[in-house]
Write a protein that binds this DNA or RNA. Structure first.
Length: 376
DNA sequence: ATGTCC
């Protein structure tokens, strides 16, 4: 029940963005939670477990950790490399073993300490990508749409970048599990002992996830004889305070990226372009958030079935844009096929039409690393 | 999403 003010619910999507009815139903159901001030769905909205994915929810003091989900701090990070386009030896790169699914073989304790992070039971997960939609990818500049804004990133048109999508691995999951075992999905006050404790652990998971993305990029780059330097890191699963009109608002993001950055990357799939955009919205009307990607169109099980019928494994190891895919887990190769995702061009167009972004440049995926291990 | 369910 909403006892304060009516929730403002907004779905930022045109008729061209296909959104499942179940996702919209989840958006409106979540908007009814106690203390909910604002619910915003983005064009990549799709059904999720605790609530819809591709949405941001704003409360004035109540926290709903289950809306964030288990992968607390999950997000994208963009790195510049000292590689240029002619360095991209895709045939050779596609044969390399990057070992990003195995623990890092150097001193993780030192790395954590340098990041100001304490040791946990999940230390050996640091620097590993994980499964699902996570990846590490080398990309090249495709088209510059705004030369001035592009120049401000410091990137050269020939320079290769690295995009890393990963989160807090087992750590975040353990934090959510501990919270939900006591409070289920009822929510807790931000000032309550449970709220303070969750936020403390959540903030740790956010910093751990950022350190994880940085280490993944470093490992990926080193195998290519290169260096990676951070340009932008953006969480799309998080719960953060935001002062607004003299009040502290609590922004719950589930598959929605924080918009308050000079620029950020909205990737399509590994088979489509990624979009580097400049946020242009007012902040408050879109919960200080943006779409985090193309969004899933098919469920994982539907993707496995459809892709198995239509394609051979070898066909999926190369994308329509000529990118190489290292994914030796066959089910994952099917589940994350470009066809399983919505049209990123429509997602971006809807954000542009809503006045929320302008496109700086597009990027073409050259090498997408998932895993060399099939755990089935 | 998940050292991937007991």
């Amino acid at each position: 029940m909403n006892t304060l003010t009516p929730t403002r619910t907004r779905l930022i999507a045109s008729a061209k963005s296909w959104i499942e009815g179940e996702a919209v139903r989840q958006l409106y159901a979540t908007a009814q939670f106690d203390d909910m001030r604002q619910a915003v769905g983005f064009p990549d909205l799709h059904p999720g477990k605790g609530g819809p994915v591709g949405a941001a929810f704003v409360t004035a003091g109540r926290l709903y950790p289950h809306l964030i989900g288990g992968d607390i701090g999950c997000g994208m990070a963009l790195f510049q490399t000292n590689l240029v386009r002619r360095d991209a030896k895709l045939d050779r790169w596609a044969t390399l073993y990057f070992h990003l699914e195995h623990p890092w073989d150097e001193d993780i304790g030192n790395y954590l300490a340098a990041c100001g992070l304490a040791s946990t039971a999940f230390d050996t997960d640091l620097g590993t990508i994980g499964g699902g939609n996570h990846f590490a990818e080398i990309q090249a500049v495709e088209t510059v749409h705004n030369a001035t804004a592009f120049r401000q990133t410091g990137l050269g048109k020939d320079q290769l970048v690295m995009l890393v999508h990963s989160g807090s691995r087992g750590l975040g999951e353990s934090i959510l599990r501990a919270h939900v075992s006591v409070h289920r999905g009822e929510g807790v006050a931000a000032e309550s002992p449970a709220g303070v404790e969750y936020l403390r652990e959540h903030d740790y998971a956010l910093r751990w996830a950022q350190a994880n993305r940085a280490l993944i990029a470093q490992r990926f780059a080193h195998r290519l004889g290169a260096e990676a330097g951070l340009l932008w890191d953006g969480c799309h699963n998080s719960l953060t305070p935001r002062e607004h009109d003299g009040e502290t608002m609590w922004v719950h993001r589930k598959g929605a990226v924080a918009s308050e950055a000079p620029y950020l990357m909205i990737p399509g799939s590994r088979g489509t372009l990624s979009y580097l955009v400049q946020p242009t919205g007012d902040g408050a009307s879109h919960a200080w958030s943006l779409a985090h990607g193309a969004g899933r169109k098919w469920t994982r099980s539907a993707s496995r079935q459809r892709m198995r019928e239509r394609f051979r494994v070898s066909e999926l190891a190369q994308t329509p844009l000529g990118g190489r895919v290292i994914c030796e887990a066959r089910d994952l190769l099917y589940e994350e096929a470009p066809a399983a995702y919505k049209n990123i061009e429509t997602v971006i167009q809807d954000l542009v039409d809503a006045g929320l972004v302008s496109v700086i440049a597009t990027f073409r995926p050259l090498l997408t690393y998932k895993t060399r291990i099939d755990r089935r």
